[in-house]
Design a protein around this nucleic acid. Structure first.
Lengths: 357, 357
DNA sequence: AATTTTCTGATTTACGTACCTCAGATTTTA
DNA sequence: TAAAATCTGAGGTACGTAAATCAGAAAATT
């Protein structure tokens, strides 16, 4: 049988109450006694039964996800994943709620963070916008010992507990490395397309891209950054103009979230010279474009992984348990047309189950 | 407050005992009463508290992982991940043990499966070897309602509950697609290096690779498969001979587990014409080779993800709970030198934590 | 030496579910 | 109609931990 608190008490020659005080770091235990209990714990190899502990606490974990509103595919997907997590939450005594704030609006985000703080949640996940005020607001949460996880977009310089997202510099570097090799020495300029350079993720991606391009593929120059504001119409117009102005363009790196406009612009020039296109985020649109060979590669962050990771980390932090770092690292997925995952909504999905007996 | 069994009893106008009989599908309840209880459950939205249920059952989950012995880096890594999972297991009332069997030996695997079955575990994870006898042995486990998950290598045609591993055909296709584009039209033959063609994973990878090569890059021919038996010395010798015999080779696809020999052979020919090399499994050796630009890309299956996924699925199956499919899909990671994750053992690891308040 | 403060032990209740026993009610069979 | 079989209710104990209360014991302060 697995050892229990009673076994510790017996082994250390103290009462249950003392063991409880040590285990839950409550006051009222002498140093020597505490040491004796800890040695006993060590010796008999006790591990706390989390299920029983939570049952006894009859604790529920109210977690809040603060998400940007707006209609780009990635954020909608993220929201869907949060919703899916909401449905599963009760199984582990969690309650997940969401708060929507206007995208890229630091002031609104600060207000939301403070409002959420007033409800004393067990943890907060937030898609960060960079600003000193937001950092301060996050730190106010942390000052009240409320765990905070940044989601998708990190908040450097804050006291957030964890970042559930990808390394965007590495993503940009990877894009450059792929594009450089796909072009195979074919010289020419490269067009870079952002949503907005005011967002940290996008800046980091460009930094990584530029670094590897300069270092490993000096034959290519980067044209001035196009900022499409994640707006399909605007993006299509700007990309069309840029391609017309620089017909010798050999590559496009799109690291924003609005790929619909890019794809539309690419379709316009079916008969022009081939251009190597690398984009971010696997959506209905980029998936189709991969299959039509309009896009060569898509770098993706799996929103589902990010949300589930955020939930796990928040729960672990709330429990004071340890986080398995390797499990919580979000990898950059690289998709070519050849390794696209089967679509959730696809009827022709490959069966994953074995036959029934 | 979340509804409990008491609330069901009150809502259905029956006693706790009857609710219990319905919930745990015990005999002794009339059809009409059963229906009334089930309607009440539906209506008040009851979900069983698994933690409390398991506590009451004082159930522990003995899971067994059957792994091949042998010393290749990937399997050693897998074993390390299983060991890590063993240490975390008690937190969730699980006990994980391992059984080692000689690699690629169907007879020994069948014996191990039957031996494990005699211990009546709560679930079994197994790195499968393809054979009718193994399928039968797995089905014997399933016939006793013991959940079975195949790990890394699947067992088609068996009644296994789940496969925790990557789509190896897609992996081969991806490798071909990357290599074709990296070569950028430069013609020439391609050398393919397997561990053994008797293993399903390897065959599938080659099938995928060949399919995309034939379809999209007909300029390349595949040289006869080299089988290095995952032996470094043998592999180095065979690769050296192959490169000498076909000096016009432009690419090497290594889809076995023994890359040390390949890398040694590549180092021998430092001044020869460049060859595009794509290998499988990120290990100390392939990581170093990526950084030295001896290897261009590494396709990887994350052993940690696979093991943790297997454990989660086994627990869910043992509990009769649902499996989150999207969470359990293991992606193929593509690593270039630009997106290598920070090494676990690396001292210069990038700090992941925010500053403390 | 008296008082306060700090520490420790013993005991109890509660969390939500599983599972057991026993008694009474209802239905079916002889 | 009696006997047997089947259903249902009531009530209890157990799982391992948390957290509270209260009573002593030891130590520190007057």
């Amino acid at each position: 049988m697995r050892p229990t608190v009673h076994d510790i008490a017996a082994a250390a020659g103290v009462s249950l109450a003392t063991v409880d005080r040590v285990l839950n770091q409550r006051a009222g235990v002498r140093k020597v006694t505490r040491d004796r209990v800890e040695q006993a714990i060590e010796k008999i190899g006790y591990v706390r039964d989390m299920a029983a502990a939570n049952l006894a606490k009859s604790r529920i974990y109210p977690f809040v996800f603060i998400l940007p509103s707006g209609d780009n595919s990635f954020m909608r997907g993220l929201e869907a994943e949060v919703h899916a997590a909401m449905l599963r939450a009760p199984l582990e005594r969690m309650v997940i709620s969401t708060v929507k704030v206007p995208a890229f609006n630091a002031e609104a985000l600060v207000a939301a963070l403070d409002e959420v703080r007033a409800t004393a949640p067990a943890g907060v996940a937030v898609v960060a916008v960079e600003s000193p005020e937001v950092i301060a607001a996050v730190n106010r949460l942390r000052a009240e010992r409320i765990p905070v996880v940044t989601l998708v977009s990190d908040l450097a310089g804050s006291a957030r507990d964890h970042f559930a997202g990808v390394d965007n510099v590495a993503a940009g570097r990877t894009a450059a490395s792929l594009m450089g090799r796909f072009l195979g020495g074919r010289p020419g300029p490269i067009t870079v397309l952002a949503g907005s350079m005011r967002v940290r993720d996008h800046r980091e991606r460009l930094d990584g891209f530029r670094a590897v391009m300069d270092e490993d593929f000096p034959g290519h120059t980067l044209l001035p950054v196009i900022e499409g504001q994640d707006d399909p119409v605007l993006t299509e117009k700007l990309v069309g103009e840029a391609l017309a102005a620089s017909p010798e363009t050999v590559g496009i790196y799109s690291f924003g979230a609005g790929n619909r406009g890019l794809i539309a612009a690419l379709k316009q020039r079916k008969n022009a010279a081939p251009v190597c296109v690398i984009a971010h985020e696997l959506t209905r649109h980029t998936r189709a474009a991969l299959n039509e060979r309009l896009i060569d590669a898509v770098l993706n962050q799996d929103a589902g992984h990010e949300v589930r990771s955020a939930v796990r980390v928040l729960k672990a932090k709330a429990d004071g348990a340890e986080v398995i770092c390797a499990q919580e690292r979000i990898y950059i997925d690289i998709f070519l047309k050849d390794n696209l995952p089967f679509d959730e909504g696809d009827e022709n999905q490959k069966p994953q189950q074995g036959k029934e007996l």
